[in-house]
């Protein structure tokens, strides 16, 4: 049950520094913990609580609200099938049932080999491309049952590893703000009127 690694602790502190209040970094730090361990390990949440100066209960309180945060291990590949209205009309439920049969699990469960977790999810904003699914939040549009079978096979064989990172990693590109370009967090109580907001009738602007 790991805490943040030394490297991730530095990154966590850098992320906290971007926000006017440390608690705003909570969701980004939970994502970082999930990226590190594949799910939210308890010690990582305790570590986050220390870093943002809140209680572990507050950290879990926030984490438990959001369905992307997994407090138990899930499969390497999280397969999310949309069954909301647009996908339902175009075969989303049939796609989900097909995958239930293929993986021999019900939505919300993980295969015995720890490879796949299947979920029946709400609209993922690909409605014109229905039916659709995501694997670790990478989109597959207008996917047939045959294509889904091929996808599972490719994932098992590791042929998609270059495009689909293991569960926990979202964006593989991270924002980084160079120190010399940083404007800084706007902390309440420490900021006055921005310099570019001088009133329009400022004498400096008036014709001589």
């Amino acid at each position: 049950m790991p805490r943040f690694t030394a490297e991730n602790t530095i990154l966590a502190k850098e992320i906290i520094g971007r926000y006017p209040h440390p608690k705003s970094a909570l969701i980004p730090l939970l994502h970082l913990a999930q990226e590190q361990d594949g799910h939210l390990a308890e010690d990582a949440m305790v570590h986050i609580a220390e870093l943002i100066d809140h209680t572990p209960a507050e950290v879990i309180g926030t984490a438990s609200f959001y369905e992307m945060f997994k407090r138990e291990p899930v499969g390497d590949y999280l397969v999310n099938v949309c069954t909301n209205i647009a996908c339902m009309l175009m075969g989303g439920e049939e796609l989900l049932h097909h995958l239930e049969d293929r993986l021999d699990i019900r939505p919300g469960s993980t295969t015995a080999d720890g490879m796949f977790t299947l979920e029946d999810v709400e609209c993922i904003a690909a409605c014109t491309e229905a039916p659709c699914l995501t694997v670790n939040y990478r989109y597959f549009h207008k996917i047939s049952t045959d294509e889904a079978d091929q996808l599972l096979e490719d994932l098992r064989a590791g042929r998609r590893a270059h495009e689909i990172p293991k569960h926990g990693t979202l964006a593989r590109v991270r924002q980084s703000i160079p120190a010399d370009r940083r404007a800084g967090a706007a902390v309440p109580g420490e900021c006055g009127q921005p310099v570019w907001m001088t009133p329009k009738d400022d004498p400096e602007d008036a014709p001589a």
């Binding site: 980004p28 994502h31 959001y66 369905e67 945060f69 703000i177 160079p178 940083r182 404007a183």
Partner: peptide, 22 residues
Amino acid sequence: VGKDILGSSFSCDIVLHWGAGA
């Protein structure tokens, strides 16, 4: 983006933040 944008007095950080499913 950031400090003194394009050499002006306008400074503003843009922080990318993302949710977690809700």
